[in-house]
């Protein structure tokens, strides 16, 4: 493939994967898991988009960034098991386990938390932060986590040690209800857009209450 086309493709599609045999376009870094390779943007001097904050430039806006990051943390808790290593490539974990961890982190209706987390998992997968395999119901870290400089990972490692334990794998396989959990939200995904609007309010109000309570 032409190199310019490959770079343009990588920019337009976000994080497309190419076979390892294909060359990575010049000027891009890459993350590989042995079979596939993901071209990633490269920034000069080891900077990351977090630098935007120092220049008081607004980063890309996100709906509910806090929730997305909590779900990412829950996913990393399950996938990044050897915290002394790099998060990439990590190991696959069951989506049900991630949802369980997230439900344990958050307050309120656990079923609702799982539904929200499912949506956030998809959004994170769309933007290359997670690799979600909905058929097998597994998730693993996305290629973008390979962009994290090693020096910034200390506090994240500490945090992940404090997060609730994911349920052991055999617990998930023993419970058929949990096994179907990743498949179930897929059916509900169609109605998620509609259901999200009405269910959203409760969570938002809860969040607002939390903030107000902390402020007092």
């Amino acid at each position: 493939m032409n190199e310019e086309v490959a770079r343009a493709r990588a920019r337009v599609l976000g994080t497309p994967s190419i076979p390892v045999s294909e060359p990575v376009p010049a000027g891009m870094s890459s993350a590989s898991d042995g079979e596939r390779v993901w071209p990633l943007p490269a920034w000069p001097d080891g900077a990351t988009p977090a630098l935007l904050e120092e220049y008081q430039t607004a980063p890309m806006p996100l709906d509910r960034p806090g929730q997305a990051r909590r779900v990412l943390a829950a996913a990393l808790r399950c996938c990044w098991t050897r915290l002394d290593d790099d998060p990439w490539p990590g190991r696959p974990a069951a989506v049900a386990a991630v949802l369980e961890v997230y439900a344990g982190m958050s307050r309120g209706d656990a079923e609702l938390a799982r539904r929200w987390a499912t949506g956030e998992l998809r959004r994170l997968a769309d933007t290359g932060w997670l690799l979600l395999d909905e058929q097998s119901g597994t998730v693993r870290p996305g290629p973008r986590v390979a962009l994290w400089p090693d020096g910034t990972l200390g506090s994240l490692r500490d945090l992940l040690r404090r997060l609730p334990q994911p349920p052991p794998d055999d617990a998930l396989t023993l419970q058929p209800a949990d096994e179907t959990a990743p498949a179930e939200p897929l059916d509900g995904a169609v109605e998620e857009a509609g259901g999200a609007a009405e269910r959203h309010d409760g969570v938002e109000a809860e969040d607002a209450g939390e903030v107000a309570g902390a402020g007092e």
């Binding site: 337009v12 977090a50 980063p59 929730q67 990393l76 982190m105 958050s106 933007t127 997060l163």
Partner: peptide
């Protein structure tokens, strides 16, 4: 042609988000 959405989740931001989030136990 637009760049794909590429939000950035800094590790420190993840830590902040988890610590500021609603928790099951009282803070």
């Amino acid at each position: 042609v637009f760049d794909a959405a590429a939000p950035w989740h800094e590790p420190a931001a993840i830590v902040t988000a988890v610590e500021d989030g609603p928790r099951s136990t009282p803070p």
